[in-house]
């Protein structure tokens, strides 16, 4: 293939105000403006969004899934971070 590859962009869409942007998929486009237009055509044909973010895929930094054990270990060993760790006296109905 003699042609140069067209860059890849990740697409995030806010479905409505009050919601956060969520990853919808990706598109190929030469620049940011074309990426936004392509994202609109590909991912919002039925009123799926009010706001679109596009981010160059190469700019996303991700953790290594092979090391997710070490990465997320601290969360598993701190059960006192959850309200269910604490027993309430019976007299206290709700807290």
């Amino acid at each position: 293939m003699s042609e140069q590859a067209t860059p890849l962009w990740e697409v995030f869409i806010r479905a409505r105000n009050g919601m956060s942007h969520r990853h919808a998929g990706s598109v190929h486009a030469a620049d940011a403006e074309m990426a936004l237009q392509a994202a609109r055509d590909v991912y919002t044909r039925r009123g799926e969004g009010l706001s679109i973010w596009v981010v160059p895929s190469a700019a996303i930094i991700a953790n290594d899934p092979d090391e997710k054990g070490e990465m997320f270990e601290p969360t598993a060993s701190k059960i006192y971070r959850h309200p269910t760790f604490y027993e309430l006296p019976d007299e206290v109905a709700n807290m």
Partner: peptide
């Protein structure tokens, strides 16, 4: 509208395939 959807479906699927390490151009 239907034909545009088919094009869109192709694009969703190419993107899914590309996550496995193959380029759109290939």
């Amino acid at each position: 509208a239907k034909i545009q959807d088919e094009g869109g479906h192709g694009l969703y699927l190419y993107s899914a395939a590309e996550t496995l390490g193959v380029s759109r151009e290939e």
